[in-house]
Write a protein that binds this DNA or RNA. Structure first.
Length: 157
DNA sequence: GCCAACGTTGGC
DNA sequence: GCCAACGTTGGC
């Protein structure tokens, strides 16, 4: 069992979109970075916990909890010739990029990036490191505990 | 294999 | 829109 933080631009796929999807499940697609791809291909397991993070928006932060709902499979957007995720070097025989399905567990009050930076115990969290741009990063069990406890405290108000 | 140029990410 | 940080490309 591992934990991950996965970024999504809410203009593309928000936590509301995820919770409204059939089975609260959507494919997580569009990753075009090898390090992120390798996490998905080699380390993600069905049932892993996911912090669903909104990026490139007014207030970035964790917007909900989710879980990995499939093993990796070829990201179909790499073959969509007119799409923004098209990769001319990918072939059906040798796909480069993978997707996984993500199932939303619940929407939470937004835990902003600024608040996360202020939380003791998250100093070493991958997504908070300077220059961190990966769309998927590992979360330690302790970081997961701190964040989910904070989210529950937020919901109690 | 080096590295300059260029492209992308993403917070602010 | 700015810009720091990082990744990729391609000439040599």
């Amino acid at each position: 069992m591992h934990y991950w933080l996965m970024k999504s631009e809410p203009d593309e796929v928000s936590i509301d979109d995820l919770m409204a999807a059939p089975g609260q499940t959507l494919p997580w697609f569009g990753v075009r970075n090898y390090q992120a791809r390798n996490f998905m291909r080699d380390a993600l397991q069905v049932g892993d916990g996911v912090l669903f993070y909104h990026s490139s928006c007014a207030t970035p932060g964790v917007a909900g909890l989710a879980e990995v709902a499939s093993t990796p499979y070829p990201d179909r957007t790499q073959f969509e010739r007119d799409g923004k995720y098209f990769d001319p070097k990918a072939t059906l025989e040798q796909p480069r990029w993978v997707s996984v399905d993500v199932r939303g567990v619940r929407k939470t009050p937004l835990l902003s990036l600024a608040r996360m930076r202020a939380m003791p115990g998250l100093e070493h969290m991958a997504v908070l490191q300077k220059g961190s741009r990966l769309s998927i990063t590992p979360v330690t069990a302790e970081e997961w505990r701190l964040i989910t406890e904070r989210l529950q405290a937020g919901e109690a108000h």
